[in-house]
Design a protein around this nucleic acid. Structure first.
Lengths: 352, 352
DNA sequence: GTCAGGAACTAATGCGCTTTAGCTTGTTGG
DNA sequence: CCAACAAGCTAAAGCGCATTAGTTCCTGAC
């Protein structure tokens, strides 16, 4: 049996032998440290390249250099996962930025925040990651304290201005301005003549859910709209449809619905169709977070759109900056744009 | 400034000191090796637990134990990513299985297979992963040879029976029976009276695309359907809609369309609506791969359904088995079930 | 009573890398 | 001509763990 043996990974020792220098000289040469002449450095570099050498992350990590890996945990019940375009897009953007620096992304999906904390703790104890990205910030989020205690650098993605991470910790924040986005939506609907607006909100524990609910109320007050409301769901298509039926069956049903994600908006559109309502003739629909879904329906859905991949890229870059020793920052993400499409139109009359 | 110092990671040295034994004894005790008494073992275990100790993956990897990490690369243009439920579900299942054994999942998205090969090579050189999961097998796939040469254990997910990986390599295969699924779809449509069936296929390079196209042709021949065809797309909603318009504008348009993913099916449904066709009255639609999307439209889409998370779990388990030294296997995944919903119905007449 | 042999443990080595300390040269100032 | 010093290199230690090679002590067999 003459099967080719699996290639052996080249090490710094191989390079040293071939280049005729010591291992330390190789290390200096390849890491841009002083202590070797320019000619030696160049020679070592060539040999390394020729051998296809790459530093072993394990060895690097062991000698205190970090693992060149960052972690991302998604804490969502499996049921509500796997359809929103948001996360895959976000992840795609995140590691586009990471790939530029040859960082890896360690990824895990868990059921809830408790489990997520356990994962962070484990990753830290196993020295698996240099930092983490935290999504879906919550009211009274236990993760900030944990990460601060562990000394694990982090970037919180989509946080509200509210509960700040402990000062002193290496935790940056990239937050989306939900209030401005909600104001834009309400403004759009109000201008079209809508007075009864219902918000089909997502998971109640999430900070941005609370924030959107509060923003709707504030904006409604400002405009003297007295028939607005938010109802809570779990982001699933099932609850999106169910909530739609429920609010449309009420005595004075809304004329416009704002959904907290694209999946529920699509489900809501179908639910409205089943009730014999035409969109946008009888009912206007707005989706929070745009995706091909919103463009694929008939009519296409008016949506709050953003470049989610770019959002992820920015988050990852902030984390890399933290790992490079930059001070933590709290920055505002690009605003969401309201993309008017066929699912919103004016109302002829409304009994507000 | 009295900020609490970040906790220091405990090592086996700490345990050894607290338990009053040598470091080796600790290692033996915690790894279930012989060489320590039951009482000592128990004491060491308690101390370790109390300290929240977990082995450093870096140190473990360095001493030849592997990294307890597997890799997954998605080679899809960013455009076609981020909406199919398939991948997030698959990933969710994969690491549910991995989590049971405290394995990590390293995840990367790249543009094409060439880039994917580079990633595998880099992961191997950096000793980042013990094995990889390979999705979207292709005709003449360069990855099998590469992984075999690197000696990187792998599981190929969704492979056709066709191009087998090199023998001797630690490569398992978990394949889906596309032929049977296509036969079920054609059988369903044929029974409803459809004679003109068009298949809106996905990316041409993928092995399963070729396989589905061939299966449609074979099944059509068997049933003497002379007006079937497959058209190629890139899985995006845009091309799905475009292809739909194109085939429906032809002289003798099909009465049934089979889409290679849920996104295109939804886009196709909308496109049909824009052409004034009613579904299922004028046109029947079947989606390959079910998701909430298919249930959220009006009418809901008849779809080929499977438990994608379970599929991922199985794939991950096969990889773990390989890492444990089990011989490579080639097994058939659970069959796809045809889920008839509102988007398919009988035709009154058809000029076949 | 001695010696083989096993149980229970400790010491030492290596994995691949970074880093500190040390060791040669050659150069320069006095 | 030698001290002082820098440049360019090598030797060695350490990161945390697994593992192999001892070491000690105790038991049982003869």
């Amino acid at each position: 049996m003459t099967r080719r043996l699996p290639a052996r990974r080249p090490t710094i020792k191989d390079i040293a032998r071939r280049a005729g220098v010591s291992e330390s000289a190789v290390s200096f040469a390849l890491n841009g440290r002083p202590g070797v002449s320019a000619t030696t450095r160049e020679r070592v570099r060539r040999v390394a390249e020729q051998l296809g050498w790459r530093p072993s992350t394990a060895a690097r990590a062991l000698s205190g250099e970090g693992t060149a890996t960052v972690g991302l945990v998604l804490a969502r019940p499996a049921r509500t996962l796997g359809v929103e375009s948001f996360f895959l897009q976000l992840v795609s953007g995140i590691q586009e930025a990471l790939a530029e620096r040859s960082f890896g992304l360690l990824f895990q999906v868990v059921e809830d925040v408790r489990a997520e904390c356990a994962v962070h703790r484990r990753w830290w104890a196993e020295r698996r990651v240099d930092g983490v990205l935290v999504v879906d910030p919550r009211e009274d989020d236990p993760r900030y304290e944990l990460l601060a205690a562990l000394g694990l650098p982090a970037v919180i993605v989509g946080a509200p201005a509210g509960p700040l991470p402990p000062t002193g910790a290496a935790i940056s924040t990239l937050w989306a301005d939900d209030a401005a986005a909600m104001a834009a939506v309400v403004g759009h609907l109000h201008a079209l003549g809508h007075r009864r607006i219902t918000h089909i909100a997502g998971l109640p524990g999430l900070a941005h859910t609370r924030r959107r609910i509060a923003s709707l109320r504030a904006e409604a007050d400002r405009r003297c709209l007295r028939h607005t409301a938010s109802v809570i769901t779990d982001y699933s298509d099932a609850q999106g449809a169910e909530a739609t039926h429920r609010v449309l069956a009420a005595p004075h049903p809304p004329t416009a619905l704002v959904y907290d994600n694209d999946v529920m908006a699509v489900a809501g559109l179908a639910a409205a169709g089943r009730r014999g309502l035409s969109v946008p003739g009888d009912l206007s629909i707005v989706a929070w977070d745009d995706s091909v879904l919103c463009r694929a329906t008939h009519p296409p859905l008016t949506a709050l759109s953003r470049d989610t991949a770019a959002f992820g890229r920015r988050a990852a870059r902030h984390l890399l900056a933290l790992l490079d020793g930059a001070p933590p920052v709290c920055v505002l993400a690009d605003p969401l744009r309201l993309e008017p499409r066929g699912s919103t139109a004016g109302v002829l009359q409304d009994g507000s």
